[in-house]
Amino acid sequence: MNASKFIVAAVAMSISVTALGAGGHEDGQAAKNGEPAKASEADRTITVEMHDNYYEPEVIDVKQGETVRFVVENKGSLVHEFNIGTPAMHEAHQEEMEMMVEHGVIQGGKLNHDMMEMDMGNGHSMKHDDPNSVLLEPGQSKEIVWTFSEKGNLEFACNVPGHYQAGMYGDMNFN
């Protein structure tokens, strides 16, 4: 296998594993801890600001069965992610994010949207469109609506290379 086919295959495998993030990634934690919902079902709205390597708020309290509409705003100067998952899911997702940097999809403070559309085979691309996650350029804002179906070890994090390690994550505390 030549090098370019190997890279494409490796990225496709990584993305196909990560694409399961909301439904069955790792040990099935996401599936039992929550699922996407509609904004009309939200019990409340929480605004989350992403700054360069930290979030405001740093901790989010949720209730089992609660549906939360997260309005996520990137107030930093770099591309950042808001991703709801278990620590193991974030660790696995960081490999995909590293590949996105290596292939020029994430370029510091901007995203190469053309590269995100690149066909990786088997219907996979480098799009970052999982229902438990948003990837935003500086000044952008998007929403995630999530129902927390069962108590679990959840956190929110930015998995852009180096950001999680610099402390850009927070806990989801169940009440």
Rank of each mutant, 00 (worst) to 15 (best):
T47M: 05
E73T: 12
K63F: 04
D43W: 08
E150I: 03
H128A: 08
P87L: 12
N122H: 14
N173P: 01
A37N: 06
F156V: 07
N112E: 02
G121T: 06
L78A: 11
I46G: 06
G162E: 08
I84T: 01
G21D: 04
F174R: 06
V105K: 00
H25D: 10
I84A: 00
M97Q: 11
N153V: 05
G123H: 11
E150N: 15
V101D: 10
Y55T: 04
N83P: 00
G152V: 07
W146D: 01
M118N: 07
M100I: 01
E73G: 03
E150R: 14
K75S: 10
A92K: 05
L111A: 04
M126G: 00
K75A: 11
G34D: 13
G76A: 08
H128S: 12
A166Y: 05
L111S: 02
E137L: 14
Q29G: 12
M1E: 11
D43A: 15
E137G: 12
F82G: 01
M1Y: 07
E66T: 14
E66F: 15
S16R: 13
P36L: 01
A166D: 11
V160R: 02
S77T: 15
K151N: 09
M120S: 02
T18K: 00
L154I: 12
Y164E: 04
A10I: 03
S40H: 04
F174L: 10
N132H: 10
A12F: 00
A12L: 02
H163C: 09
V79S: 05
R44G: 12
S40A: 14
M50G: 12
V79Q: 04
K38C: 09
G108K: 11
D171C: 02
V62R: 02
L154V: 10
E150P: 01
Q107L: 10
V48M: 14
N83G: 04
W146C: 01
E41Q: 15
N153G: 02
E155T: 10
E91Y: 09
G123V: 14
W146Y: 06
N153H: 08
E117A: 15
E73R: 15
N53E: 08
I7H: 00
M168G: 03
G139W: 13
V8D: 05
H163Y: 04
E81A: 11
M99V: 00
G170I: 04
Y55Q: 10
D171G: 03
P138V: 09
E56G: 10
K5Q: 14
Q94L: 05
V48E: 05
